[in-house]
Computed example of a mutant assay.
Amino acid sequence: MTPDIQTIFFDVGNTLRIVVKDQPFIDKAEADLMELIQTKESHDELFEKLEARWNVYRKLSKSTLLDVSEGELWTQFMLPDYEPNMVFANAPRLTRLWRDHDGRRVARPDAVETLKELRARGYTLGIIANTVTETEIPDWMAADGVAQCFKTTILSSKVRLRKPDPAIYHLACRCIGTPEANCAYVGDNPVRDVEGTQAAGFGMMIRIDEPDTLNKEKATGKEFIPDHVITKLSDLLDIFPARG
C-alpha cells in the first residue's frame, strides 16, 4: 500500500545544492582563511595539515555518529596549535572558509521551484543534514527565498546527532509533528541516507542520482535499496501529487 506522505525531509549537500569548482573563489577562501588566523605557515603546509586533521575528524564522527560544534571542531581538531580564544571566536567564519575551499555551493537548477511547488501542493517540508556549519544552510535558504518552505531544519552540528543514526530522524519528526510512517526523505547517499531513513521507519526514501557520491560510497560494500531513484529534483513532482 502506498504510504500517506504528509512531510518531506531533504538532505542538502549534493541533494538540494551541488559544488561548482570555481578556482578564483577557492583561492580567495584559502587566502582569507590564512589571513584570518595570521598564520606563519606556507599555504601548502597549512592546508596539508588541515586536510589530514579534517580526515581524522571525519573518520571519528562517522564511527561515533556524533558531530561537534564549530567551536569544538576548530579548537580541538583543526587548529589546536593556535591561540584558542582567537580560534573559538572565529570558528563560524573558519568553517565557512573551509567549506568554500572545496568550491562554490549553488542550488540545483530546479531546486527552488520544486520546493515551492511541493509546499503549494500541501506538503510540509523539512531538512535533516549532516553539516559542520550552523549558518551556511539557513543563509542559503534566505538568499534563495526558500526559508518559508521549511518548517524544521535539523543540522548535525547543532543537535550533535548525525545520519544514519535513526535518532536524528526521530528528532526531526517530533519537531515537525509528523509520524515517521507519514514522512519521506530525499537524499543522495546510497548508504547513509537510505540506511538511516529505513531504520527510522520512514514511509518512503527517494535517492537522487549523484555520480560523485556514488563513486565515494562504492568502497563501503553496503547496499540499501531506496523506494525511488530520481535524476533531478523536479522528478519529485511525479511522485508527490497535490494533497487533498
Rank of each mutant, 00 (worst) to 15 (best):
A143S: 02
A31P: 13
T64E: 14
P164H: 06
G71T: 10
I137L: 00
V194R: 00
D110F: 05
G13C: 07
V56T: 11
P80E: 13
R99T: 11
R243W: 05
E70D: 04
G177P: 11
E45P: 00
S63T: 15
M141I: 07
T135K: 10
H170V: 11
C183A: 14
D227G: 12
H101F: 12
I5F: 04
A91D: 09
T178G: 07
K28V: 14
L118K: 02
G126M: 01
R93I: 06
V12T: 03
R93S: 06
V87T: 09
V20S: 05
F47P: 02
L233W: 03
L118V: 03
Q6P: 08
R58Y: 13
N189A: 05
L233K: 11
L79H: 13
I239F: 15
A143R: 11
G177I: 12
G126K: 01
L79F: 10
P190C: 10
K218A: 11
R162P: 07
L66W: 04
R192L: 14
K62W: 09
G122N: 07
R192C: 13
P80Y: 03
T213W: 05
V191Q: 01
I239N: 04
A120S: 14
R17T: 15
T135L: 05
V229N: 02
V20H: 03
A91S: 14
G13F: 10
Q148E: 15
C149N: 01
D4N: 15
F10S: 01
M34C: 13
Y82F: 14
M141H: 06
C149S: 08
P164F: 01
D235P: 00
L66F: 08
L73H: 05
E45G: 01
T220V: 03
A167M: 08
R174L: 14
A91C: 14
V112I: 07
Y169S: 08
K232G: 09
D209T: 08
C149D: 03
T133N: 10
C173E: 06
K216E: 08
K49S: 13
A89P: 05
L155D: 04
L46G: 07
I37K: 00
R17S: 09
V87I: 14
P84Y: 05
I206E: 01
Y57A: 01
D102A: 13
R162L: 10
E41L: 07
I8H: 03
V56R: 14
A199N: 09
V87R: 02
I8G: 03
I137G: 05
G145I: 04
S63L: 15
L16M: 10
K21N: 02
V106P: 07
V68S: 09
D102L: 13
V112W: 02
T133C: 12
H101D: 12
E217T: 07
E217L: 13
P109E: 12
P226R: 00
Q76T: 11
L65V: 05
K40D: 08
A142C: 01
R105L: 06
S156R: 01
A91R: 08
N189H: 12
Y82V: 03
K49T: 15
L125V: 06
T178Y: 10
L50F: 07
K62H: 13
G103L: 00
E72C: 02
P3H: 09
N14E: 10
G122M: 08
D212T: 15
I8V: 07
I225A: 09
L50G: 06
R162S: 12
R99K: 04
L125I: 05
V106T: 13
L60P: 08
V186M: 05
G103Q: 06
